[in-house]
Every structure is written in C-alpha cells, then in structure tokens.
Design a protein around this nucleic acid. Structure first.
Lengths: 232, 232
DNA sequence: CGGTATCCACTACGATACTG
DNA sequence: CAGTATCGTAGTGGATACCG
C-alpha cells in the first residue's frame, strides 16, 4: 500500500483507499449490485479497462472486495465502505446540481433504470417500453433510443430493436428525465410540462410510473424542502 | 467546476468535490476546528502551501467552506460533508491498520492532542507535561520532545523548553502512544507493558490519563470487539 | 501571516491494439 | 468475457524563491 498522506489519522488512511480517482464510483456500482467486470464498466463507462483492472486490484489488496470466479463482491469491510459511498451520494443529492450538459448520459441512465424496476408491480405478460430521448447534447455518442423489455422477473435493456410490440413509448427531454430519476421533479409534473410524453397502450401507460422506481437517492430530503413546502 | 467523471450520479458529482487528493484530510482539519491557514497546514503538514491554497479555493467554489478575514469556516453544506469525513474516519478506524512506520509523526500527534484535553478536569494551577518519544523512525525530521503547557482554559504546545517546571514526564514509544491515542490499546495497558512511562509529581501523574482525551475516533467499536470480549 | 510565481519532473492516465 | 501490453502526453504537484 503506497502511503500518500503520511498520517496515522484514520481519515487519511481511509482516504488513501477510498478517495482515489474513480474508486467511489466503482464502489457505487458494486453497492448497486454489479459483480462482473463488464457490468461494472457499464456503470463507469468513461474509465479505461486498464485503469478499472488496476483499481479493482487495489480494492482487493485493501480487503474491500473479493474476487473469485470472475466475480467481484464487497467484503464485510466493503459493505461498510459502501455505506460511506451512500452517505456521500446523499450529500451530493442534497448539495450539488448534478444535471448539467456534460454529465448527461442516456446509456448510463437506462442502465441504472434497468435495476430499479418494481418487478412485483409488472403485469403477468411481457412489457416493452421504448425510450426516445431528445435534448441530447451534440457530440454525444450514445444512442438516443432504448428498449426496456420486462418479463417477470427479468428486465433487459436493449440498444437495438428487440422485435417485440412496444407497449409504452416514452419521449422525453434527457435532462428532464434525469431530474425525474434523481427525484428533483415529480414525473407527473414533467409530463404536465411536456418534458416527458407517454404514449401507447392505455393501461400500460397509466401503470408505467408505478413500475419505474427512481434512483435510490431520489428520496433524499433536500435542504430547502421544509421551506419549499411552506411556500407551496 | 471541471467535470471528471461525466456522470449525473450524485456519488460521482460529490466525488469530484470530495475525493480529490488531500481534500478529505483538509476537511478533517476544519471539522476538528482549525480556521486559519497556518493552523490547517499544521494538521496537513506534507501538503505544499500552493496546493493547500488551491484546494481551499476549490472548496470555496463548491460552497463547502466560506473564507473571510483570513479565516475558513465550513458552510452548512460543509458541516454535512464533515459528517461524511467522520464516517470515513470511522471506517478507517475499524478496518485499517493506521499505525505504520511511514505514518508515525510525533508533531502531528501532539498537535492533535492539544485539542483533546479535558480542560475542566485540569487542576487550578498551571500544569506542564513533557513528552519524549522513542522508537521514532530514523530520518524523521520532527523533534522527539514536546511540552504541553495547560493553564485553564488554554492549552499550548511547545517545541522548545517553555521554562516552567515539568509536572509530568511522559516517556513513550511513539508507535505505542499513537495506538493509545487511536483507542487500539488502553493507556493503562501500555504503561504496564512499559511502552509508556509516566514520572513526576505523584498527584499529577495519577490524574494525567484523565486529562488526556483520546482521538475522537478512539471510541469507535472495532469489528472483532464482541469476539475479543468473549475470549477475555 | 498568508499567500504568489515559476519551473520542472514525474506519473498517472488515455488511446489503441492485442490475447487466452 | 476479462483482461494485457505499449506508448505518448497532459496535467498535477513538488521545490524554491519572492511578496504585501
């Protein structure tokens, strides 16, 4: 373990492990359940493969994750460090403005959504939802169209037409949808504002908002919340 | 604000602020109460002045600290980020082994101790404690001898003989004393083991352990604690 | 005390291509 | 799928000296 700060203080020692470039984001991906190398990378798309390998090795060396059979899992220490990641994310949800042009990423958004579907609320039959995002910053490489194919208890994300009939069409401004995802605005409001449009089979369209759980950080109370309520 | 991770996830955004090199350690110093530039640097001795300036500016720009009149203070957002720092430190106390040769630093230790004296338990009269550390790694630049001059409600740290009669002489192995400081071993045990020796005026020697509060992280329960108790 | 300014060295990282 | 290998570079930060 390379000593960076030269301090015995546990904050410094922990920072040598935790506060490395990319590490908190990699840990978030593990906290959210990714186990396999390529899955982890999907959640951290801008990291290079070589660097991801290096970081994972460091985390193994520090006892934060175990690696076996091509899978990475948080150890007990890792689970607890995951709580720090969540705490940091809650701070970010409260005190930062995450939605900015250079942070919009439709692929990452849909990859995150895939994990937050209320499977128990889905109908018996397979449901296919097609997302078309507008307002995607120019120069953005990721596709603008995605399909979520949900067939209890499985949820698959497709980037190419899966060939099933589409039940719900979601046309949405990307920035607005990210805001909905993060709990900054209610989906009903985004629909009313025209930032999000739902079309397709009546019943499915009505139920769609209840299928889509939001980000785990969406429920974090914001600093102005009490005041906003008073005003409203 | 430079976008590092290109993700809207609040964990990523918060990491761009928090998980920069040195930043968690600087924040710890602010959490522990330092306000002035040079005081902060005393708690982060290995950072260069130029870099400390830069990091403080970044924290101001991110709304984590305020700077005015040559003082830096945590904002409301900063206080909450301080809770994350503490959480990270608690993880470090539980899951890392902070005491290693290249992390020992007598100056930093005494600087930390200065802030953790139970002022209300001190006697009316001035008390002077002299520390002599042994087992300091070769090549260590910091002095081996320090004086803590405590005169309610003030505590001063000296590196040169303050000229007062010494009430308590503390001769201690540096590594062992750091372990005591961090709550890894009880001071009574370190005394029994001969790693820490107290001499001087009887009454003061007896009371000294009650004056010295330990690190705020000393009380963090360790993973093996329950098991250890069972064995003992 | 609380910074600036300059310069240089290093190394961490990204890009790209290849492998079992 | 899960890496390895190589190489060039941007940018980060250390050292040092100076300043209001």
């Amino acid at each position: 373990m390379k000593t960076v700060y030269g301090q015995f203080c546990p904050v410094a020692v922990a920072s040598e492990i935790f506060a490395e470039r990319w590490t908190p984001v990699i840990l978030r991906e593990l906290v959210l359940g990714s186990r396999r190398f390529n899955d982890i990378q999907r959640g951290v798309p801008k990291i290079s493969r070589a660097l991801l390998v290096k970081r994972l090795r460091e985390l193994v060396a520090h006892g934060v994750i175990d690696s076996s059979g091509g899978e990475y899992r948080l150890t007990e220490a890792g689970q607890e460090l995951g709580e720090v990641v969540v705490h940091l994310g809650q701070w970010g949800a409260r005190w930062t403005a995450p939605v900015r042009r250079d942070r919009l990423d439709a692929k990452l958004l849909t990859w995150d959504m895939r994990r937050r579907i209320a499977v128990d609320k889905l109908p018996e039959k397979r449901v296919t939802v097609r997302f078309d995002f507008r307002g995607v910053p120019a120069g953005h490489k990721a596709p603008k169209t995605y399909w979520l194919v949900m067939e209890r208890p499985d949820v698959d994300l497709c980037i190419i037409e899966p060939g099933f009939d589409v039940d719900v069409y979601v046309d949405a401004d990307l920035a607005a949808f990210v805001r909905v995802w993060l709990g900054e605005i209610p989906i009903r409001q985004a629909i009313r504002d025209g930032a999000v449009n739902l079309n397709g089979e009546r019943q499915s369209v009505r139920e769609f908002p209840s299928w889509l759980l939001l980000s785990t950080l969406a429920a974090v109370p914001r600093p102005g919340e009490a005041i906003q309520r008073r005003v409203a």
